[in-house]
Design a protein around this nucleic acid. Structure first.
Lengths: 113, 113
DNA sequence: GCTATACTGAAGCAATCGCTTCACTATCTG
DNA sequence: CAGATAGTGAAGCGATTGCTTCAGTATAGC
């Protein structure tokens, strides 16, 4: 079983590369073959396949081979997990700021008693 | 000037480490000193400082030194940028699925004419 | 069956990462 | 001033990354 934290490691690591992000951007427009993913990238096909393996291991992309072409699809659920982690931290911070604001407002309503 | 893509590289790279994520989680609850950030982590203070530099370079954390203690704060705006990139990809994919669904529904309304 | 296509796998290699230790510098506190 | 505290900086080192090339396999189309 894969721990939640390890999963996040793999996801963020996968997204930390501009080439891999480009692949994800391409896939968010619809499924694509390996060669289609490789086309805009200035590197060997082997390198692209290695990037693809990183994306697949992270769960961000699912692939299936039919005949000689491997078709790649985005996995929005996994993308959603990364999104949620970030959103949780951000909203936690913002709620803290709100509470702090209320506290300060309370202080100015009731000044040095 | 820092390109948008480079910025995302640094952010996702920064978030790809469990120790650094723990620091961000801690900071989302409120500002902290370097030693406070280090406390739950099983590594030298030097290592923590290095992680902190990664977080700072990514723009996710801002720090300020007063006297001998450096206080670290989260930067929710940067966090929001990473969140937005993910959300954009996910919703783009989901809109595509919706359009596909409508198309298929249209097909079944008007079957093999 | 022959050739082109679409990958696949392994080895190798330079660059970067995530630490460590050790030595050092400020800044409080009594 | 003497010590304790909080962090800084550099060197070093093994592991991981991001490629490359080269050699191979499995389909597809003629």
């Amino acid at each position: 079983m894969l721990h939640q934290s390890d999963q996040l490691d793999l996801m963020f690591q996968a997204l930390a590369d501009p080439g891999r992000r480009l692949m994800v951007e391409r896939l968010s427009k619809g499924p694509a073959s390996v060669s289609q993913l490789a086309e805009p990238l200035d590197m060997s096909l082997s390198a692209v396949v290695q990037h693809l393996q990183v994306l697949e291991a992270s769960g961000l992309v699912r692939t299936e081979k039919v005949g000689r072409v491997r078709t790649c699809t985005i996995e929005p659920k996994t993308l959603g997990q990364a999104e949620k982690w970030i959103a949780d931290r951000r909203t936690q911070w913002e709620r803290r700021l709100d509470r702090l604001g209320e506290y300060l407002a309370g202080q100015s309503d009731k000044p040095t008693r």
